[in-house]
Design a binder for these strands. Structure first.
Lengths: 129, 129
DNA sequence: CTTGAAAATAAGAACGATTCCTATTTTTGA
DNA sequence: TCAAAAATAGGAATCGTTCTTATTTTCAAG
């Protein structure tokens, strides 16, 4: 028996915030983004709603990047490139997944994550020379 | 100019502990594992040494699983299956990586992670019926 | 339009993993 | 044997996240 959900302007705004960016934000980023429009928004509300979106499959988690959980509105299959310097999370498409091997359990999700230094940080550090 | 490293019996034991298990342990697991043999071992020492091993490339991180960072002595290319119920991390081999697309930065590492419910938890929950 | 029960929230306390700090101990090379 | 450098213990501090409780909002029924 699942609980009835009431409408909430703030919940809508949190989801819209995720939908409207490609930055794969953290809870805090969403909070700071919405705070001007919702001066009494609390960080706990952002966390609670993000958790609910996760559970209902409306969003996915990119995992913890630099200690901050990052979220993604795009639930379609794609990979991520994560910069270990600036912690940018960038979509990587056109990754044809290989035929899956036998797994030690039932598969629910698959994440492909590349790590390195993004082009921006790369040129920034060569400038610094 | 890199710093000279002195020998340390505890550091050796921490690395050996990782080398001797396939459970992809957390810092706390390593700590509890070694505490009987090193009664004055402190958790900070485990964290510090794990960080140093990470930085020197002697081990890799599996990422945060259920809020705990998990480490892997096996640095050869392989994937992981993570059970969302018991948080087991299980090696998955024979994943031929697809030809890589153009990436938005320099590639340093690639992680392939499957998520689901492991066979053990699966049968445990069907028993519970 | 009321009204009351359920749902959502704000505010901040609590929690827990990890990092940091400092005095002490260990290691190493001379 | 000795002194400088490295490593550690112990515990405080940090900080992302979760939890608690009193208050506010939503919504359906009357």
């Amino acid at each position: 028996m699942e609980k009835k959900k009431n409408r909430s302007r703030k919940r809508d705004a949190i989801l819209a915030c995720l939908a409207g960016t490609k930055t794969h934000p953290s809870a805090d980023w969403v909070y700071r983004q919405l705070k001007p429009d919702f001066p009494d928004l609390s960080l706990g509300t952002v966390y609670r709603n993000l958790s609910e979106f996760l559970e209902s499959g409306q969003i996915i988690s990119v995992g913890s990047v630099g200690g901050l959980e990052r979220y993604d509105y795009d639930v379609s299959p794609h990979a991520h490139f994560i910069c270990r310097k600036c912690h940018a999370v960038i979509d990587v498409r056109e990754i044809p997944l290989p035929p899956l091997p036998e797994l030690p359990g039932t598969l629910e999700a698959c994440a492909v994550t590349f790590t390195g230094v993004c082009n921006f940080c790369q040129s920034a550090s060569s400038d610094a020379q």
